[in-house]
Nucleic acid binder design. Structure first.
Lengths: 232, 232
DNA sequence: GTATATTGTTAGATTATTCTAACAAATTTA
DNA sequence: TAAATTTGTTAGAATAATCTAACAATATAC
């Protein structure tokens, strides 16, 4: 009888996997100092944990080379991200939390192993595909749909767009958006764009007008409607 | 400047505190072997952790004597039990789980530190005072109301009682109760009691009749209505 | 293209949590 | 009460996750 006890990843290992996954998505390659920085541990600590994850078959690592997740590691990470995003969505839609306060809670809830718990959340919400920040929720197999939104800074005057996701979900940014009543799903019309500093004036909610800096525009991901003059 | 960093209890320590609290409530004194047995660790392990908890001021321990929680330790434990029971209640009333499946999930959720999360649950449920098994939910200060239910085995023929809580919430027992449609809040009338084996025949839901063994009766906690003939 | 800075590694130590082996104290049984 | 059993303790070791110090490799700057 083969008694193959596949040890579940510890909470610590789960955090490393998630960090590798997120860093790889943001910046492509992941080196030890980025990883250490992200997790607020020393480089020797990150180095040693990467070796542990390699032994477990979750990543590939060669001295002085960037760390790469294996398909196994990617799936493990995606399933943690799934739990995180389902939780965030649940906290917002079913428990009345603001989108700026859910990340911290979800960081803890994502390490719960009872899959029943997350399946019920999923069911109660009608199987959502994105979280409250517009990020896609991986499916049960760890697959992620590619949403391919554009940054608002790519939009041109006259175009209409829908705010669909954020590339920065820090509390500060979310609170900035709250203060301008900018929520996901909001329709924006690009009134003008300032050539000097790339800031954009938009109108939304049938009346509000707002100037958005380039910095802000880069972080707002939008669906751009095909131009009415069919220039494509 | 006094820089008193009071270290939060680890998940492991929390589990020891909870075990000490529960064992003390069930059996009075807690000795090392009971604790070790409850947590499925070796006696030296339990012994060593008890010393750690003592250093943290959560319990009092002298060689070969029973372990006693300090007021600090009792409060810490009660607050974990609070999170556990709030979670169980939430899972049953807001997420549609059966009472026999929530314990396992709550064992994991109780270690989440985000107090916002539990406060929102509490609020959504209207500040319940008991969990789905009839056990009291400690308040935010760790205080527990004393419910003082009686065991059904103390009831006498002719009396009417309401099933209020359980002294055993094992999955097997909960499934037994499910199969008989016995839920908390059910009104039972004691039809007769068999002197030989202390089994009791009850009627409930206006029609159902059921014979309950002494073993079962001892685990059912009830509110006994004052007798109509005011014999007290 | 050398000097400087950054990044990464190894070695060695620490703390938390656990174990087994060996022994000691307390309790139960006969 | 003496023997047997149970309970508890100490000692010593193992693993996970972390650190600092010291050194090595790679990348950047002049």
């Amino acid at each position: 009888m083969i008694n193959q006890i596949v040890q579940m990843a510890s909470t610590t290992e789960e955090n490393y996997l998630k960090a590798l996954f997120n860093l790889a998505n943001e910046r492509g390659e992941v080196n030890i100092s980025e990883l250490a920085n992200q997790l607020e541990v020393s480089m020797p600590t990150a180095n040693s944990m990467v070796k542990t994850l390699q032994k477990a078959g979750s990543c590939i690592y060669e001295k002085y080379k960037p760390v790469v997740l294996t398909p196994k590691g990617k799936k493990e990470a995606a399933l943690i991200v799934r739990k995180h995003r389902l939780t965030e969505m649940f906290l917002v839609t079913k428990m009345g939390f603001g989108w700026e306060e859910v990340h911290e809670i979800a960081e803890q809830v994502e390490h719960i192993h009872a899959s029943k718990f997350f399946e019920r959340m999923d069911e109660m919400m009608g199987y959502p595909t994105v979280d409250p920040h517009g990020s896609p929720i991986p499916d049960k197999q760890g697959r992620i749909q590619d949403l391919q939104f554009k940054s608002l800074s790519e939009a041109k005057p006259g175009q209409e767009v829908i705010l669909a996701a954020l590339s920065d979900s820090s509390t500060e940014f979310l609170e900035y958006l709250n203060s301008r009543k900018l929520t996901l799903g909001t329709e924006l019309k690009i009134i003008s764009k300032e050539a000097f500093d790339q800031s954009i004036v938009v109108s939304f909610l049938d009346s509000e007008k707002e100037t958005l800096s380039q910095k802000v525009c880069e972080k707002l991901l939008v669906k751009i409607f095909e131009s009415k003059d069919s220039s494509q």
